[in-house]
Every structure is written in C-alpha cells, then in structure tokens.
Design a binder for these strands. Sequence first.
DNA 1: GCCATGGCTAGTA
DNA 2: GCCATGGCTAGTA
Length: 108
Amino acid sequence: MHVHKQLKASDVFDIVVKIPEGKVTTYGDIAKILGHPGASRAIGRILNSNPNPIVVPCHRVVMSNGNIGGYAFGKTRKKELLKKEGLHFMRDDMHDFAGCRTNLAKLR
DNA sequence: GCCATGGCTAGTA
DNA sequence: GCCATGGCTAGTA
C-alpha cells in the first residue's frame, strides 16, 4: 500500500533541457507537471546530481517565491549565469519573476 | 538524517 | 519559523 511510482531523474532533466534561455521555472512546477506535487525538494536533490550541467540548464530552476534557490556550484555562479541571459536580481530575489517564468505545459 | 522546497501559521510593527 | 515531503547517503550491526 501507499506505493506510488517514483520520480525519475531522467524525466526531470527532460523538462529542464527545454527551458528557454532567459526563462525560469520552479522546483514545485516541475514536481507538479510530473504528477508529484509534494516533491519539490526531491526535484532539487535530483538537479544537484545533474551529470551534465552544460546541456541541462538547471540554473534556470528557482524557488517558488522568486528567490534564486540553490546550485551545486554556488548561488553566485547561478546568478551570474542568469544575469548573462538578461535576468535581473535584487540580492537573491528575481526582478519580474512572473514575467520570466515559463509555462512548462507549453514547452516542446 | 540530510537537503538546490513550499505552504501555512503566528504574531511583530 | 515550523514541518511535511521524497530521494539519497553514510555507515551501524
């Protein structure tokens, strides 16, 4: 009982590769679209094990409140990468978070 | 038991 | 600030 299918890391990475440059999504949004609404923290753990940060842009995944969130190479690096894509921050919070948030359901 | 989160409550200013 | 959540790892027996 209470046996549900487990989150697959490859499913998470498959979504993250599709986030366009200059756009972001959240740990929670990825969790929801995969049918695991409570698994946002698990998403972060999976991203932390990203085997290929070059092709999988996990720096584009941030917290649901617009805060930068974590990054395996430090949030400073994560912010730099996002700034290079034209995004802006005040301290660790994104400017116009709503405006640069991508709709995962529409990605292809 | 840790942790790259999130949603909710209490209760300060 | 608290705590539920879910996947993972270290490391005890």
